[in-house]
Nucleic acid binder design. Structure first.
Lengths: 139, 139
DNA sequence: TTACAATTATTGTAGCTACAAATGTATGCA
DNA sequence: TGCATACATTTGTAGCTACAATAATTGTAA
């Protein structure tokens, strides 16, 4: 059944990649999920972000983003300040320590990404990306 | 960077599928991981399986398989008996209740798998499967 | 203004994972 | 026989997830 194969293969591949990247990041003391939050914050270029906007970039739930940010704050990698315009919101930003850490991690993750995709040509990678994108365009 | 896109898309797609299937299975009181264990046990056709052989079919760690089986035993969906030939091992088998549950779930999951892949043609699904398989053949 | 609804974030619960340490059993060898 | 080693599984810890319940603030309508 090709439907099932497509579904199962995609799940397994995703899991393997997640495990591999986590294995790479453990040396830096953060998880892939924390790393993604940091990258999103860096992408804001100094502008603060609230939880909701981070979450929308993550496809994950706010409930978890809240706790991920917690762990990053504990490590001094990002800051959390109650928004004065709307005190329900929280302004989150990356610290210098966070930026430093990302600079160390960047080349290592790039190397790992290259390794994970080494069996594919550039053309095959684009095919893969467009097939996955098409599959996700479900509703 | 096409490397990164391939990696990130694969992770995201895998997560989305996992979430969707979990959402489908919650009505039956089990997770996708528990479901997979049950399917593996059914595939043994009555023959018992030890933890190690289940794990090798799952790409997951034994540590977790042990706890997954625990939850299935608590629900009466599988049985765990210490192996008499080698008492370090544990013989695990699916119960009639487990088989019944799978019979109920099968059509629902098939339907969900069809839905998740509905944007792709059969040919595209095979392409996807072979690209993912190629990518995984890393080492 | 007060009461109710909507928004934003946090917290509780339970299940998932990896990794490492602990347990119990079997085996090989001096 | 006794003991080190290997094997098979379980358990502890910490981080991840979804879902639901809660808290706090803001918006709105009577």
């Amino acid at each position: 059944m090709i439907n099932r194969q497509a579904v199962v293969q995609t799940m397994q591949s995703g899991n393997i990649i997640t495990e591999q990247l986590n294995g790479t990041l453990i040396a830096f003391g953060i998880s892939i999920q924390q790393f993604n939050v940091l990258r999103i914050l860096r992408g804001r270029n100094g502008k603060v972000a609230n939880l909701e906007s981070i979450t929308s970039d993550m496809i994950h739930r706010m409930s978890n983003t809240s706790r991920l940010v917690n762990r990053l704050v504990e490590k001094g990698l990002c800051k959390r300040v109650i928004c004065q315009q709307n005190r329900r919101k929280v302004d989150i930003s990356i610290t210098d320590a966070g930026l430093d850490l990302l600079r160390q991690i960047d080349p290592v993750v790039e190397q790992k990404e290259a390794e994970l995709t080494q069996k594919l040509t550039k053309k095959e990678m684009s095919q893969l990306v467009s097939l996955l994108t098409k599959m996700k365009s479900n509703n």
